[in-house]
């Protein structure tokens, strides 16, 4: 081959290879835009909100005077709602996933359940709010209470918990189950003593991601009619006298962190926007640390377990 032709081919290859570099740069740029937006969001929130973060902010009720307003009723409300959500979503979600992975026969009914769960995952959260408004608030008579809100969010994160649990269970090799059956264990014995404990980290990841999503959900809770100005706490769950435990708080009116933030954001005064930023910062720290925890658990899992 003569030198000219060779040079031409080299040129051609180099020209095409240049596109590799250009695209890699564009790809990094796009990732950079996403990262930059995320950073801008966090920094903006931190700059606006950090001056308002003090012990008082956590121990004060909302107030008409922005400088004295706090998030006491909001974080207490969020915590209690999350308790109900976890109590509703974890047992139902994990049981459903165990059934689908370990028990379900391959038939039409199972297929319907599976398609249904995939579709539920795509239903907009505000539609869950409408479901709860029609069903929990009015038909069941739970009212605009912590119970209604917790159950609503429980339904909302159910698909997340189910999908994560199924994935965790599926990753356990069948040799583990066969070993248990070989020494005479029943199906449930195998599931309870082996399958569930080994898939626990995976299930935890799913539950944490689901809870992180639930704690930031605003639309469905607004839809069931939660109030945004609550200057009292629900009755304490633990009482001084017999029977010590009280479930009155389930029926109490409440507010949650994202609603408090929404309320402050939609006011015109800049001072309330600072409160909104501070509340947003707390909310962001909570959800991001939960997500980070989930990512960490998954990372550890991937590193440690080699079946």
């Amino acid at each position: 081959m003569d030198q000219a032709a060779l040079g031409e081919i080299r040129d051609l290859i180099n020209r095409h290879k240049r596109w590799d570099l250009i695209f890699a740069a564009v790809g990094l740029l796009c990732l950079g835009i996403a990262a930059l937006t995320f950073t801008a969001l966090v920094i903006d929130m931190a700059l606006d909100g950090a001056p308002r973060l003090s012990a008082d902010f956590f121990t004060n009720f909302p107030s008409r005077r922005p400088a004295q307003a706090g998030i006491l009723s909001a974080w207490v409300g969020s915590t209690l709602v999350m308790l109900v959500t976890a109590a509703a979503a974890i047992p139902v979600g994990v049981s459903a996933a165990v059934y689908l992975e370990e028990y379900a026969p391959k038939n039409l009914l199972t297929a319907i359940i599976e398609i249904n769960i995939t579709n539920l995952a795509g239903v907009p959260s505000i539609v869950y709010g409408l479901l709860a408004l029609g069903l929990f608030v009015y038909a069941f008579g739970f009212g605009q209470s912590i119970l209604s809100a917790g159950l609503t969010l429980g339904l909302l994160i159910l698909p997340v918990v189910i999908v994560a649990t199924r994935e965790a269970i599926r990753s356990i090799p069948s040799a583990i189950r066969e070993a248990a059956y070989a020494v005479g264990a029943t199906k449930w014995g195998t599931t309870w003593d082996h399958v569930l404990p080994y898939s626990l980290p995976g299930i935890m990841t799913g539950v944490i991601i689901g809870m992180a999503r639930a704690i930031g959900e605003t639309a469905p809770i607004i839809t069931i009619g939660a109030l945004s100005f609550i200057a009292f706490l629900p009755p304490a769950p633990i009482q001084g006298e017999f029977p010590f435990l009280s479930f009155e708080w389930l029926m109490a009116p409440f507010t949650v962190m994202p609603i408090q933030m929404f309320n402050w954001t939609s006011r015109p005064e800049a001072a309330f926007h600072q409160n909104a930023a501070a509340a947003g910062l707390v909310l962001l720290l909570m959800t991001l640390s939960m997500n980070a925890l989930a990512i960490y658990i998954r990372y550890q899992l991937r590193k440690r377990i080699k079946w």
Binding site: L41, I209, R213, T265, N291
Partner: peptide
């Protein structure tokens, strides 16, 4: 990073959009 981005509550995104 992308996972964290999808974990940001929408009300926080709303604040970011408006202000």
């Amino acid at each position: 990073l992308l996972e964290l981005l999808s974990g940001v509550p929408t009300v926080v995104y709303g604040y970011f959009a408006l202000l």
